[in-house]
Design a protein around this nucleic acid. Structure first.
Lengths: 112, 112
DNA sequence: CATAAATTTAAGTGTTGACTTAATTAAGTA
DNA sequence: TACTTAATTAAGTCAACACTTAAATTTATG
């Protein structure tokens, strides 16, 4: 099967997924609305959404037959935290907080 | 031509390259010193360094037969800028943490 | 209930990229 | 000049991944 547990960085390495995240930064969108903004197939987009979800970068809300995707701010926070840590913006004792932010990675059961 | 130009996001998607960036966040290092910190071959590390360099994340300085690598802060700025752009600056744990950091008498608030 | 609509899962494929060892370039030293 | 050290480039292999179409799942609607 096509399992892959991608970390946040790998998830954002893909340009399409980055565009999706940018879109969701504007407003939440149904899967179909996201598909409509690309030329690729619906399954392709769906797979990207799955990766983003598993990376903790987006959330899904079920609304009838729709899936409403929105940004998960904590995911982006963790990303930014890494950058700032490397650049030395943070003192060492705040690393604990970064770990905390980076944590909620524990796969919440998937709906199917 | 094994390596095409990678953007910054793709460059940081790779865990080894991320570790290298973290190391260089501490201090500049010669290529050989970086190699010594990993178990993979020297060429493998060299290729990673090439990717990071082309992505604008690190700089090289030639010193005799050594190549001294160091962080290119501008490269990391781009990431932070992207994240902040996407999620806007209205919501963030980080902003709260920043305020926490800015509080007086944190005593260890100096950067390293 | 049957069909449509929205979305995901399954299965398969071509491309990319992260390694390896071998060879090469370049600088320091006897 | 030859020898060593530092690092890169070359060439090839193998797994991961970003797509595709087809099938399944789930909810809404006539």
């Amino acid at each position: 099967m096509n399992f892959m547990a991608m970390d946040r960085f790998a998830a954002l390495a893909e340009p399409t997924r980055r565009q999706i995240v940018e879109m969701l930064g504007e407003s939440p969108l149904a899967a179909g609305e996201i598909v409509a903004r690309f030329q690729m197939s619906a399954p392709a987009v769906s797979q990207h959404l799955k990766v983003l979800k598993e990376a903790g970068l987006v959330r899904v809300e079920v609304a009838g037959q729709r899936r409403i995707y929105s940004l998960d701010p904590a995911g982006l926070d963790a990303f930014e935290a890494w950058v700032r840590k490397v650049r030395g913006f943070w003192s060492a004792h705040l690393d604990l907080l970064e770990q905390e932010l980076a944590k909620p990675d524990s796969d919440e059961g998937e709906e199917r």
